[in-house]
Write a protein that binds this DNA or RNA. Structure first.
Length: 290
DNA sequence: TTCCAGGGGTAGA
DNA sequence: TCTACCCATGGA
């Protein structure tokens, strides 16, 4: 299947890709020579395909799916691509907000503001858990062990795998899961999340729709094991609700360099407070001094 | 050996 | 609400 998908005029494929590190986490991979984002994806039919996304020009996204796909599969893939690239996120108001502020004028200029996501909130949640209290290098390793150890293999290239579903993880005893994935203490958080989804205790995917109030959604996310203030702010940001700054060691380091003295979490929050309900996105695309 | 990384959970105040 | 401490993992 090959398809050209029209994109909003304020969308940039590369800026969305580079907004944060998600493009470097399996089952995403970046083909720099072709300027192409690849991803192994499992469809509801069970079939595994390789998705390739690229953009020439600014008006449309090129989508290529390995092997011939039926219409039903195409209808399944397009919404996933729209979610991954936040194509339906109304970013115009944020761009107008930035255009009035000299320090943020580069954001609309470069068509920034969207962030690469996974096709499911499940995958984004697991990946956020794997970023906590560890290095980015280890986040990549843990994600790779998760994908390669528990995700379905792409038949055309069996070394490449899709992201495991909650069912695929819940089916493995927790001790075995922990020993294989080597996520440290994060293993129980990931395994319990998968189990809660499989047992019907938690409908994670519909949570954002059921909680239109951001603070209520934040509190609901905080009840998930492994999700604290930082992770909840990250997830809200990916859900298009950038009212919180995901303060982490990078935020502290960046602001400390900017101000010339070590800062606390509270000082990072205070620094971005004036950006109001856009502060999470402002932080993400903030032009720190070198 | 010790410290710590894109923190979180818990106990105790 | 705030603080101190522990949590598994692996690289420096």
């Amino acid at each position: 299947m090959k398809r050209s998908l029209p994109t909003p005029t304020d969308f940039s494929f590369l800026e969305t890709m580079n907004a944060h590190g998600w493009g470097a986490l399996l089952p995403f991979s970046w083909n720099s020579e072709a300027g192409m984002l690849e991803r192994i994806e499992q469809l509801t039919s069970g079939r595994i395909v390789c998705l390739q996304l690229s953009q020439e020009g600014t008006e449309a996204l090129d989508i290529h799916v390995s092997e011939a796909s039926e219409n039903a599969e195409e209808a399944e893939i397009i919404p996933r691509v729209r979610r991954m690239l936040q194509l339906d996120l109304p970013i115009g108001e944020f761009h107008a907000f930035c255009a009035d502020r000299p320090e943020l004028a580069h954001i609309p200029g470069r068509r920034q503001g969207r962030m690469l996501r996974s096709p499911t909130l499940w995958e984004d949640t697991v990946k956020v858990i794997l970023t906590t209290n560890t290095t980015w290098r280890q986040t990549k390793s843990m994600t790779a062990r998760l994908v390669e150890g528990f995700g379905a293999a792409w038949p055309s290239e069996p070394s490449r795998h899709a992201f495991p579903s909650p069912q695929q993880i819940a089916a493995v005893p927790e001790a075995e899961f922990a020993a294989t994935a080597k996520l440290g203490y994060r293993a129980s958080a990931v395994h319990s999340l998968a189990t809660a989804i499989c047992e019907g205790i938690l409908d994670l995917e519909s949570l954002p729709e059921r909680e239109p109030d951001t603070e209520a959604l934040r509190k609901r996310l905080l009840t998930l094991r492994g999700i604290g203030a930082y992770s909840a702010a990250c997830l809200l940001l990916y859900l298009g609700r950038p009212e919180q700054v995901n303060v982490d060691s990078w935020a502290r380091m960046s602001l400390s360099k900017e101000l010339g003295y070590p800062v606390t979490d509270a000082e990072v929050h205070a620094f971005f407070k004036s950006y109001g309900s856009w502060r999470g996105l402002v932080y993400t695309f903030y032009p720190w001094k070198e």
